[in-house]
Design a protein around this nucleic acid. Structure first.
Lengths: 161, 161
DNA sequence: GTTGACTGCTTAATATGTTAGTGATTATAT
DNA sequence: ATATAATCACTAACATATTAAGCAGTCAAC
């Protein structure tokens, strides 16, 4: 007896909508030999001058273990530099290189141009609505939302039938 | 000279908003030893009875190469069965098992309960707006949106400085 | 009935997501 | 001062994302 849940899968809708947007930018980014995450970092660094890894994690929504690898590869490619903070040997400062600044200088305008095209196609009101709704969702703090009680844990992977 | 682009990073906003939502469901899903993708598949199969792999890819937004591994693991766990279509040996039918149907029967109501809590916290209007805006974005077909012209390809990873 | 194009799933290779844990460093509380 | 806790980046292990390529099965034209 197949039964639909009362609510549509909202996170999945986000996924789909995001992909619908991203597919218009991905060709531009890959054209320059970058991944989506690498571009997020380059763009953020070009706006913030210098950042520490955990700040990049926050701004770019990349988890710390992933970032380690991403930064290593970007360092190899000569896109960023990593230097320790003298007064706190745990911390690291990440900066753009002249090369990556030039890259952002070329890539950025193309991204903006694509945004304009999308704005035309979607209509400026939809874009505005998008930003509004997103900001509302993000503004809803994670804390105050209560969590349902979970039943005792069963090891389903071990249950026979 | 750090300069901000004219547009905020919209796909990144989607990512953040999605995570803001998902973090309220993730504990429920992992409590049952499932991954997010596995739950997407279970939920969809429980609503559609039976599906072929490429249909699952479409519905759940999982790329075909990923799905191969996901389904293998789910088969190992006894959550789904895979059977060939006799009249077309290329195609495969994926179904839930009695075990996974029972699992969905326990998990589903918890998900719905969490949606209700979120609806209270966000306000029903915001949820409604969300569905509306998402559907609008998704409705905007990928085809008609034109693509900007890309400059000749440079191999940035090989450029010195 | 063979050839050639196509479809559907899989494999391969690399990059990232996710959770847990480690080691070194710094801050805090005795 | 010293033990403790907290912080930060990193490693490890596994799952998924992404792109490209492979391979068997089907279909259509000839």
């Amino acid at each position: 007896m197949p039964r639909k849940l009362a609510y549509r899968n909202l996170p999945q809708l986000f996924l789909k909508a995001r992909e619908e947007l991203l597919c218009h930018f991905r060709p531009i980014i890959t054209h320059f030999g970058l991944t989506e995450q690498q571009w997020r970092i380059l763009r953020t660094l070009s706006e913030m001058e210098q950042l520490e890894p955990r700040e990049i994690c926050d701004h770019c929504h990349i988890l710390s273990p992933s970032l380690t690898g991403v930064l290593s590869r970007m360092e190899e490619m000569g896109l960023v530099t990593r230097s320790r903070v003298p007064e706190d040997q745990r911390r690291v400062i990440v900066r753009l290189t002249p090369k990556s600044e030039k890259l952002v200088g070329e890539l950025g305008p193309l991204i903006v141009a694509q945004y304009k095209i999308i704005e035309q196609a979607f209509g400026p009101e939809l874009i505005k609505q998008l930003y509004e709704v997103m900001d509302k969702v993000i503004a809803a703090e994670r804390g105050p939302i209560s969590r349902i009680a979970l039943p005792p844990k069963k090891d389903w992977s071990a249950i026979e039938a």
